[in-house]
Simulated assay, not measured.
Amino acid sequence: MENYTFNSLTLQLEGLRVTKTNKYPIFIFLLFTYVFILVANIGIVMLIWTERRLHQPMYLLFCNLSINDVMGNSLLVPRVLADILVPPSERLIHYYECLMQAFITHMFGTNAHTVLMIMAFDRYVAICNPLRYAAIMTDKMVIKLTVSAWGVTFVLVAVLLSLTIRLNRCRTLITNPYCDNPSLFKLSCDNVFINNIYGLTFTVVLLISSIGSIILTYSKITMACLTSKSKSLNSKAWKTCSTHLCLYLIMLCSGMILITLHRFPENRNYRKLCSILFHIIPGSLNPIIYGVQSKEIRKFLSKLYDPKNLGLFINTNNIICELRVPYCIP
């Protein structure tokens, strides 16, 4: 493929460099990880949605994180899996599909910050103002926080990519496993000064807002715990905040490693690997950490998989099968 084809709608993804020996192990690992991400995150959302006892702001806000993980991985991992099985010369992608992939990729990364920021606000209100929690964190407030998180992300990413769309392209090779904004504007031979300035401002403002809000809320939570002599309050704060903080640190560390490796072109293969891990690690660990730490979710799952309940379900199913033999297989 010509390296200087102006405004071509067909682009080439360099993708992961895999050999015949490691191609199928990598494929199987990514496939099973992707299936786990879908099952775990969709399962948590369905559980929270159907179980009325879990209709609490903390769980409803966490649903945003699960939806974000499913969205971010569903447009990325299947494409990476398909590219692993074909030679590098056949890893072609349409320009508009590439734009959509870049949009979802940046939505995923930015939305992870905004969602965790509104979850931090929820934890702050619950611990520092427990008597007013129900009055503050109403259904309307949860909806407003959710719309704000997604809306701010959408606007920021839309402006980011609109600055890239205006550029003329003179290259067609994307040296990444998937499309993102830096890969797209690097295809241009135009002046990308504005893109670099906005991209840098975008990243700095997002990180300062995200880290600043976490430091502020957790400082106030720590002060509330230190001044309070209530063991139940401190225990509740430790359980809920440790889960949220763990999710935040996983997301932040994954992103910072990827941003750092972008500054070292000689480590391109490590950057490719980290760019995929940035998506699949939080998506895999978030439902595990939240599900294991959450007392309500653990209780529901223990009841769901209780041998007595399973036995009752089997006996009930057998009775139904006896009454409706043509429609049921015990």
Score class of each variant (00 low, 15 high):
221 I>C: 01
222 T>W: 12
222 T>Y: 11
223 M>R: 14
223 M>G: 10
223 M>I: 12
224 A>E: 10
224 A>P: 02
225 C>H: 01
225 C>Q: 02
226 L>S: 07
226 L>C: 09
227 T>M: 13
228 S>N: 06
228 S>L: 03
229 K>H: 15
230 S>M: 09
231 K>N: 13
231 K>S: 14
231 K>D: 12
232 S>R: 12
233 L>S: 03
233 L>D: 03
233 L>T: 03
236 K>A: 07
237 A>I: 00
238 W>F: 15
239 K>L: 06
239 K>D: 05
240 T>C: 04
240 T>G: 03
241 C>F: 01
243 T>V: 07
243 T>H: 02
244 H>E: 14
244 H>C: 09
244 H>G: 11
246 C>G: 11
246 C>Q: 08
246 C>D: 05
247 L>R: 05
247 L>P: 08
247 L>Q: 07
248 Y>R: 02
248 Y>S: 08
249 L>M: 13
250 I>Y: 05
250 I>D: 05
251 M>G: 15
251 M>W: 14
253 C>H: 09
254 S>T: 08
254 S>Y: 02
255 G>L: 07
256 M>P: 09
258 L>W: 07
259 I>L: 14
259 I>Y: 10
259 I>A: 13
260 T>V: 11
261 L>V: 01
261 L>G: 00
262 H>L: 15
263 R>G: 13
264 F>R: 09
264 F>M: 10
265 P>D: 03
265 P>M: 06
267 N>I: 07
268 R>Q: 15
268 R>S: 15
269 N>E: 15
270 Y>A: 15
270 Y>E: 11
271 R>Q: 14
272 K>Q: 14
273 L>W: 03
273 L>T: 07
274 C>K: 06
274 C>G: 05
275 S>E: 01
275 S>T: 02
276 I>S: 01
276 I>C: 00
276 I>Y: 00
277 L>H: 02
278 F>K: 02
278 F>Y: 11
279 H>K: 01
283 G>E: 05
283 G>P: 01
283 G>Q: 04
284 S>Y: 09
285 L>C: 08
285 L>V: 02
286 N>K: 08
286 N>V: 05
289 I>C: 02
289 I>T: 04
290 Y>V: 04
290 Y>L: 06
291 G>D: 03
291 G>I: 03
292 V>W: 13
294 S>F: 00
294 S>R: 00
295 K>S: 11
296 E>Q: 10
297 I>W: 00
297 I>E: 00
298 R>A: 01
299 K>R: 13
302 S>W: 10
303 K>I: 04
303 K>W: 10
